[in-house]
Simulated scan of single mutants.
Amino acid sequence: MNWTDENHAKAKALWAQGFSPKEICDRLSCAIVTFRRRRQAFPGDFPARGGAGSPISDAEMAVAAKAWAAGESCEAIGARLGRSRNAIAALANKNRALFPARGEKRSKGRGSARLAAVGINAAPADVKAPRHDYDFSAMRLADVPAVPFAEAIVSGGCRFPVGDAAAPDGEDMPCCGAVTLRGQAWCAAHYRVVYQPVRAA
């Protein structure tokens, strides 16, 4: 295909949204080598993303949380961000407020012949991840309206959750939204909640 200005603009927009090179090429029906050449020629339009070992950015966190809420696998999310499946799994485990645990599905396999001979059914049962109903509504600051997590990411507001057990998760999770401390993701009040001083035994 001939690479046009229109295709360049579309590719630039898709790249900014976190799409992988393969996904962009599939949408534009072009060879991946063509896209790589355009990236090399216009690095400002296709800025490098964080490598596998670099800290995840706020923008990447928002993309990952949205993809997780849509049901995408760790492998698919990793492909979007240029990171490994294990990196996304670790990210989800550390940020359960944004990446709620999914029910573990196991197939009802046949028990081994040896166990069946003594009357033991070794077929694994369906296992569901436990649900933790935390209520952070009491942590909401007076005169500070809560904002969705995605909005807190964009505005730089405090990301401390302030919803009750029935509040939505993911990008719509209600957060504090107050002005944060410099270099931190929380306001002064919630920073003291997150980081408790170590007490001498």
Rank of each mutant, 00 (worst) to 15 (best):
137 S>N: 05
133 D>P: 00
131 R>M: 12
165 A>M: 06
132 H>C: 14
157 G>I: 02
147 V>G: 03
156 G>Y: 02
183 G>A: 11
163 G>T: 00
148 P>H: 11
135 D>P: 03
173 M>S: 04
147 V>Q: 13
129 A>D: 09
178 A>G: 06
131 R>D: 07
129 A>P: 00
183 G>V: 04
180 T>L: 05
145 P>I: 08
169 D>G: 12
176 C>N: 02
146 A>R: 09
143 D>M: 12
158 C>F: 06
178 A>K: 04
163 G>A: 08
170 G>H: 11
164 D>L: 08
127 V>P: 01
141 L>I: 12
138 A>T: 10
176 C>Q: 05
153 I>C: 02
182 R>A: 14
181 L>R: 15
161 P>R: 04
146 A>K: 02
181 L>S: 05
145 P>G: 05
176 C>T: 01
137 S>H: 01
138 A>V: 12
144 V>N: 10
170 G>P: 08
147 V>W: 10
142 A>P: 00
157 G>D: 04
159 R>N: 03
129 A>E: 13
173 M>G: 01
159 R>A: 04
154 V>Q: 12
165 A>V: 10
132 H>G: 11
146 A>M: 08
145 P>K: 09
148 P>S: 09
140 R>W: 13
157 G>A: 06
139 M>H: 15
158 C>V: 03
148 P>M: 10
130 P>F: 07
161 P>Y: 01
178 A>P: 00
176 C>P: 00
144 V>D: 06
132 H>P: 02
127 V>G: 01
133 D>Q: 13
142 A>V: 13
177 G>T: 00
156 G>S: 01
155 S>A: 13
160 F>Y: 14
154 V>T: 11
142 A>N: 13
173 M>Y: 00
168 P>H: 01
156 G>P: 08
173 M>C: 11
160 F>C: 06
143 D>F: 13
128 K>A: 14
153 I>M: 07
132 H>D: 11
152 A>M: 06
173 M>E: 03
183 G>E: 03
130 P>I: 09
172 D>N: 14
138 A>I: 10
158 C>G: 00
166 A>P: 00
150 A>L: 11
159 R>F: 01
127 V>S: 10
149 F>A: 10
161 P>H: 06
167 A>Q: 03
177 G>F: 03
142 A>K: 14
144 V>A: 11
129 A>W: 11
155 S>I: 11
183 G>S: 02
150 A>S: 11
182 R>Y: 10
164 D>Q: 06
135 D>E: 07
149 F>E: 05
130 P>G: 01
173 M>A: 10
135 D>N: 12
164 D>K: 08
176 C>L: 03
158 C>Y: 06
152 A>R: 02
170 G>F: 08
161 P>Q: 05
177 G>M: 02
178 A>Y: 06
139 M>P: 00
182 R>T: 11
143 D>G: 11
154 V>E: 12
183 G>D: 05
172 D>L: 15
128 K>R: 15
144 V>K: 10
170 G>E: 07
176 C>V: 01
130 P>N: 05
159 R>V: 09
137 S>Q: 07
180 T>R: 15
138 A>W: 14
153 I>F: 07
173 M>I: 05
142 A>L: 13
137 S>E: 08
148 P>R: 04
132 H>W: 13
139 M>C: 13
165 A>R: 08
154 V>K: 13
165 A>S: 09
139 M>Q: 14
146 A>S: 12
155 S>Q: 15
167 A>T: 03
178 A>H: 08
175 C>W: 07
